[in-house]
Amino acid sequence: MTGRLSELTGLQIMKNKYLNDIVLIAVLLAVSLVLWFATVTGGNGKTGEKVRITVGDEIIGEYSLGTDASVDVRGMLTVVIENGQVCVTGETCRNHICAKHRPISKAGQTIVCLPNGVIVRITGNGELDAVI
C-alpha cells in the first residue's frame, strides 16, 4: 500500500515535471508566434494604403487612398485622389509626362514629375517592391 502510494506520488511528480515542460514550451511557442505574426503583418499593413508625396528628399504629406482629396504641391502641381485612384493635374513642366500618366491605384505604383522632383507613391499592404 505504502509502496503503491509512493509509486503514484513518484508518477505524479514526473507528470508535473512533464507538464511544466509543456507549459514552458507552449508559452515560448505562443510568444514566438505572436512575435512572428506581428513582424509579418505589422508595419504599414494595418494602416491601409496611403498616398505619399515627396519633393526631393522631403516627405510633404501622406494621405489615405480611401479618402478623396486634392493636394496642391507647392504650386507646382496638384495630386488628385478620387475613388481609390491617384492622378496628377495642373503641372507646369515641359513634357507633361506626369499628367498624362494613367491614374495609379496599387501599392508600389508611382507617378514621377522629374523636372519638379515630385514623386507620388502609393504605399501599403501587399506593396509591390518595384514597378517598371
Partner: peptide, 15 residues
C-alpha cells in the same frame, strides 16, 4: 521580390 510591370493604359500587365 515582387516586380509589377506597368500597363501604359492603366494598371499592371503582370507581377
Amino acid at each position: 521580390w515582387s516586380v509589377g510591370v506597368e500597363n501604359p493604359d492603366g494598371g499592371l500587365l503582370t507581377v
